[in-house]
Structure formats: structure tokens, C-alpha cells
Amino acid sequence: MTSAADVEQKLRDKLKAADVTVIDTSGGCGASFDVAVVSDQFEGKRLLDRHRMINTALEEEMKSIHALSIRQCWTPEQQKAKQPS
């Protein structure tokens, strides 16, 4: 079973993500996650390519994940612009 912590660790390692939020939306079975990722590797990449990077980083986990909702995939600059605080 895949846990939210596994997914978060993978995204931090493979995408050198600065900020990762993973919510287990499966209700316990570990097959459904909601993720938000901030990584400077997204710089200059289209939305489609950013999603592909996340899918690739989670290739192993995707075999048991049924639904992966990618809520945000921002560069650090985008995150700063969208969340001024």
C-alpha cells in the first residue's frame, strides 16, 4: 500500500521539490491522492510536461494508485506570486 508519506518523499527526491503537499483522498486504501508540488524543475515547462514529470516520478506508485489529482505544479516564483505572504 502506498502512503501519503511515500508519495511526498518520492516527489521531494525525484523532482527536488521545495514544497510538497500530499493528501490521501482514498479513505484508507492508499489508491487516491491529491498532490501539490513546487519545484524549480518546472521552470520553462508546459503544464502537460509538468504533469508528466510527476507521473514519471511516481511511476512505481502509479501501479497501485487509481486516482492522482494534481492540484498544483508550480515553480517557486509562481508560488510566491500566487500566495503573497
Binding site: 503544464l47 502537460l48 504533469h51 489529482s69 494534481i70 492540484r71
Partner: peptide
Amino acid sequence: EFVGGSDI
């Protein structure tokens, strides 16, 4: 052309 999934 492939655009993406529902999130995209």
C-alpha cells in the same frame, strides 16, 4: 493533439 487529463 493530446492535451492532458481532467486536472489539466
